[in-house]
Amino acid sequence: MNESGALLEILRANLLSPIPLAFALGIVARLLKSEFSLPKDIYAGLGVYLLFALGLKGGVELASAPLGVIVVPALVTLGLGLVRPLTSYGVLRSVGRMGVADSAGIAAHYGSVSAVTFIAALAFTDGVGAPAEGFMPTLLAILEVPGIAVALMIGAVRLGGDRPTGDVLHEVLTGRTLILLGGGLLVGALSDPGAWEQVKPFYDGAIFKGALVLFLLEMGVVAGERLGDLRETGAFLLAFGIVMAILHGALGVVVGTMAGLSPGGATVLASMAASASYIAAPPAVRMTLPEANPTLSLTASLAITFPFNIVAGIPLYYAMATWMAG
């Protein structure tokens, strides 16, 4: 089988798995104007569970991983966090001819990361038999904040004025992702292995994967609500949301492989790099850059980049990673 044939086969296998299918069902339910949506407390609860489980499992793996193996991938991830908001801002300003506030606002979303895309990439690499390194959740925690900070700084400096940047960064640093993920990493790393074994069945395995599918169903509804906004945001943003994901994903594959990650690990790093935040970044941008139109950034990250990565991006980065490793 040639390379494009192999890619098509991976794409097909990914499409016919519960995660993208449940996501698609959520979108369809929304488009049909169904009254269905997951009760919001259950949705929030599932989000807490997924993030905390991710932190715990990553922490347990972190405790047993030699420090030397993690240092280079961690530095590379930090580099991605600093570079991605700059590339995004540059493209938005020069190619998209967008204003400073909107460019910086969108760049903050594309500088941060979507934890669900990350988890979906983990599930994908597990599914194709190329599991990523166990310390990957540590990299997710590293990638969350720097991009938001860089983009907000660009906006604050270029636009001037009195902006609560310090307050906002405090809110991002103490947001639920970092508390649950970073805190979970610590709890997992400090836990006695025997004690972890007792709670492991709840956080690892079938329950985790099942919860993820249910979460994706509701993500479909949330993304579906935004599809109508695509008419307003225009063709440039549609192209931006996809092309930027592929560029950042390819960058993630290259630097991840060079940092010594396995094809599975490079795929997950690439998926992180290709993703855009829709939880931590929106309120931070709204507070710091109120001139930016939130419809643009949220529609791009939630209705364009997120679905693209779930459906086609993750398998594409995997194909790139295996090609580069082989």
Partner: peptide
């Protein structure tokens, strides 16, 4: 309009 409802919450 919908701008007010844009941010989750």
């Amino acid at each position: 309009g919908i701008r007010t409802g844009d941010i989750p919450g």
